[in-house]
C-alpha cells in the first residue's frame, strides 16, 4: 500500500474511533434535548422520533410556571454559592499552610472525608440541625455542602501550592514581607489558576449534590436536583417537561464543563476528587 494512502486510512480509522468514543455522550445529550422538545404524542411514538415536526417549546415554559422552579434555582444558587465561597475562604489558606508545613499526613483526613459516604454525615448532622432548629432554612444545606466543597478546595490547593516554587517566597521574605504579605501578595496571585480549578469543581459538585437535599430540604428550601426528582414522583408526569427540567438543571454544569474543560481535567487528574 502506498504511504499517503495508508496515512489517510490511519486518519480515517482514528476519526471513526473517536466518533465511537464520544457518541455515547453526544447521543445521550442529543436524545435528552429531543425528549425535552417533543409533545407527549411524539415522545410516545414507536419507532421513536428524533426530530419532531413541531417543537414543544411550552415544555420549558410550563416548568417555570407551576413548580416554583425559579425559587429552587435561587436556592441552588445560594447553597452552591455560599458553600463554595466559604470553602475558598477557609480552604485556600489551609491548603497553603498544609503545603508549607509539609503536613502531608493531615491530608489523610481529607482523603478519608472523600471516601466517606455522604449519608454517614447526614445522620448526625440531621439530628444536630434539628436540635438547633435550623431545619426549614437553607442553613443546613449550606453547612452540609461544606462536606463536599471544603475537601475539594483544600485538596486541590495543597497540590497547587506544592508546585509553586519556594524560592519566590524566600525572595519575598528577604524583601521584607511578613508571612501574611507573602501569602497575599506572592503566593495567592500565583495560585490563581489553582483557585479557579478549585472553584469550578466545588461549584459543580455542590450544584449536582442530591443526597443532602432529599433529607434536609423542605418544600421551600429545595435545590434544583431535589426539585426535579420530586417532579418524577408525581404520577403520570409527562416526559417532555421532565426532560426539559432535567436539562435546565444540568445545563449550567454542561456549559461550564465544555468551557472550562482544561481546568476541570487538570483538577480531576490532580486530585481525582468527587463530592458526596
Amino acid at each position: 500500500m502506498s504511504r499517503p494512502l495508508r496515512k489517510l486510512l490511519d486518519k480515517a480509522g482514528m476519526a471513526v474511533c473517536v466518533l465511537l468514543l464520544v457518541s455515547p455522550a453526544l447521543l445521550f445529550f442529543i436524545w435528552m434535548l429531543s425528549l425535552s422538545l417533543k409533545f407527549e404524542i411524539d415522545n410516545g411514538a414507536y419507532p421513536p422520533i428524533l426530530i419532531p415536526d413541531r417543537f414543544a417549546w411550552k415544555n420549558y415554559t410550563t416548568i417555570f410556571e407551576g413548580n416554583s422552579f425559579l425559587l429552587y434555582f435561587w436556592n441552588s444558587l445560594i447553597v452552591t454559592g455560599a458553600a463554595t465561597l466559604f470553602a475558598l475562604v477557609v480552604g485556600v489558606p489551609a491548603g497553603y499552610g498544609i503545603a508549607r508545613m509539609k503536613a502531608h499526613k493531615s491530608a489523610v483526613v481529607i482523603m478519608i472525608a472523600r471516601m466517606t459516604p455522604g449519608l454517614s454525615f447526614l445522620i448526625p448532622l440531621f439530628l444536630l440541625f434539628q436540635w438547633l432548629g435550623l431545619l426549614g432554612t437553607l442553613w443546613p444545606q449550606i453547612i452540609i455542602h461544606l462536606v463536599v466543597t471544603v475537601p475539594i478546595v483544600i485538596w486541590i490547593m495543597i497540590g497547587y501550592f506544592e508546585t509553586t516554587p519556594m524560592e519566590l517566597e524566600e525572595a519575598a521574605m528577604v524583601d521584607g514581607a511578613t508571612r501574611w504579605q507573602i501569602f497575599a501578595k506572592v503566593a495567592l496571585p500565583i495560585a490563581k489558576p489553582g483557585i479557579v480549578v478549585a472553584f469550578i469543581l466545588s461549584v459543580i459538585f455542590s450544584w449536582n449534590n442530591f443526597v443532602f437535599g432529599i433529607v434536609l430540604a423542605s418544600r421551600e428550601t429545595r435545590t434544583l436536583p431535589v426539585a426535579v426528582y420530586n417532579m418524577l414522583s408525581f404520577e403520570q408526569v409527562s416526559w417532555g417537561p421532565l426532560a426539559a427540567a432535567a436539562l435546565v438543571v444540568t445545563l449550567p454544569v454542561l456549559i461550564l464543563t465544555v468551557a472550562a474543560q482544561r481546568q476541570i481535567v487538570a483538577g480531576l487528574t490532580a486530585g481525582a476528587v468527587k463530592g458526596g
Binding site: 524566600e170 521574605m173 496571585p189 500565583i190
Partner: peptide, 20 residues
C-alpha cells in the same frame, strides 16, 4: 533576626522573579 529585618538583598539561582 528574621530575613526581612536583616537589611540584605539576595539574588537566587532561578532569579525568583514574581511572575505576576
Amino acid at each position: 533576626v528574621p530575613p526581612k529585618d536583616r537589611d540584605i538583598a539576595m539574588v537566587f539561582q532561578n532569579y525568583a522573579l514574581y511572575p505576576h
